[in-house]
Design a protein around this nucleic acid. Structure first.
Lengths: 253, 253
DNA sequence: GTACATAATATTGTATACAATATAATAGAA
DNA sequence: TTCTATTATATTGTATACAATATTATGTAC
């Protein structure tokens, strides 16, 4: 299976783990700042709606605001962060409408991806994909659901890489991250209804080059995500302040 | 029809039209710098491979390097510009492989888009789309093929907006721009084989909500682009210097 | 003249300083 | 108290200064 819906107490930006210690004279800092934030969001350490204060981030990552802003802009263009003029950056909080659009776009693109993957998948690709499934499973076994969620996303991305279509990879990078946010927001402690080995089944079908079957499995797999979410209830947030911060200047008593 | 393959003598960055005159105290300069570059590329004023020197751009747009670099990064993330560490930014020059991937991705996404558009297209949407077709046609009538090309792209993007899927809009923005580059590079003065009113036909089908027909027309429409390109010959470039600049440090006598 | 090494220049990468805006805190009036 | 106006603070937006790297030019040996 792909995504997990266990909730974790959201850790605020000030507590983001593993700052790129000032000790190691870091080679390319901009990528690090980006990756730290990206991983933080995908691992649900940074809840949707959380404000990302630039100076706090400079202290955390020991780089200037220039690089922080670079990272934030990139995340914005991946739709994982929203930047509001003169108000700052916030972890994206997709509305139910947008959430549905995101899942639909994934459906469309990933069905095309697995078809391509069936045609192009080499032996080495199978090994790599299998390895990623194993990594995900080991994270599950250790109870580290945040890591499992991130690795699940990486499996899907690797599938696009195997499919050999650059634009699909690019688009999916953002869509997968956003799916993480959607799960965090709309899966209110709901159960986990889908089987644990959907990724394995998918890989088997791809390995055999069975396009129809792999597409069917992918559709089923993605369907579980949408099914597990409740878009009618108000989104689950770490805290109200964060939840409203990304909106305009709204009166809040 | 959608894309045009007439060649224009490529104008170098120093000659980009309409700098955001220092006279008008510009409100949001960053967007302007971005849009100037974006339009320059889509209108084929900036040829693939052209180096985008930061200080030159600062003089052209009368803003600091900070904003120029912001615009360049955004264009990079839309895959319209390539940035090489310590070497600078260049107008993207998609390889034949990547070009094929781009066209395939457009095919996949735009087929989904027209289907959605059939379901959601309102009267006001039809009017807007028709207006954009008229604009494109008037550019053609005036012989301004660069503008026609840009407006053609805007029609496709508007279709995605009508379809109401944000991720599709986002993805297509980059893909359409890249298609412009592909045409510039690989359509070696070839003729224009496709009918002039494909956009109109498409709109008619969408207006009627005929999903099958609109998808068929879209597939046909996109097929013309690929068919008009010759990926076996070396890409057409404005000049050799520009053509090689985006590559690594290659010996050139 | 060619090839290589070295120095001069140009260009990009990063940090900081200042300006503009938004947020918060304070004080005063109803 | 509660609301509003005003001031103070914090935060983001933009420009510039400096550092690191790459590119070009120069000069010397062969």
């Amino acid at each position: 299976m792909c995504h997990f819906w266990c909730r974790h107490t959201a850790i605020l930006p000030t507590e983001v783990a593993n700052p790129v210690a000032s000790s190691t004279a870091n080679k390319n800092a901009p990528m690090d700042a980006y990756r730290q934030l990206f991983d933080g969001i995908l691992s649900q350490r940074l809840a949707p709606g959380t404000k990302l204060n630039e100076v706090e981030l400079t202290q955390l990552f020991s780089v200037s605001r220039t690089l922080i802003r670079q990272a934030l802009q990139r995340l914005q263009l991946e739709q994982v962060v929203e930047i509001h003029k003169n108000r700052g950056a916030f972890v994206a909080a997709p509305s139910p409408d947008v959430a549905e659009q995101i899942l639909f776009a994934r459906h469309t693109i990933e069905l095309a991806v697995v078809k391509l993957a069936c045609q192009r998948c080499k032996v080495t690709d199978v090994l790599k994909l299998q390895y990623m499934i194993d990594l995900e499973q080991s994270a599950i076994n250790q109870g580290d659901m945040a890591t499992a969620l991130r690795r699940s996303g990486e499996f899907h991305l690797q599938l696009a890489i195997v499919a050999g279509n650059q634009p699909f990879v690019h688009a999916l990078r953002g869509l997968i991250s956003q799916t993480s946010l959607i799960i965090t927001m709309y899966n209110h402690g709901g159960g986990n209804a889908c089987a644990r080995d959907e990724h394995s089944q998918l890989l088997t079908a791809v390995k055999q080059g069975d396009e129809a079957q792999s597409q069917k499995l992918m559709a089923h797999h993605l369907g579980h995500i949408a099914a597990s979410c409740d878009f009618t209830q108000s989104p689950q947030m770490a805290n109200l302040k964060g939840a409203f911060a990304h909106l305009g200047q709204v009166q809040q008593a």
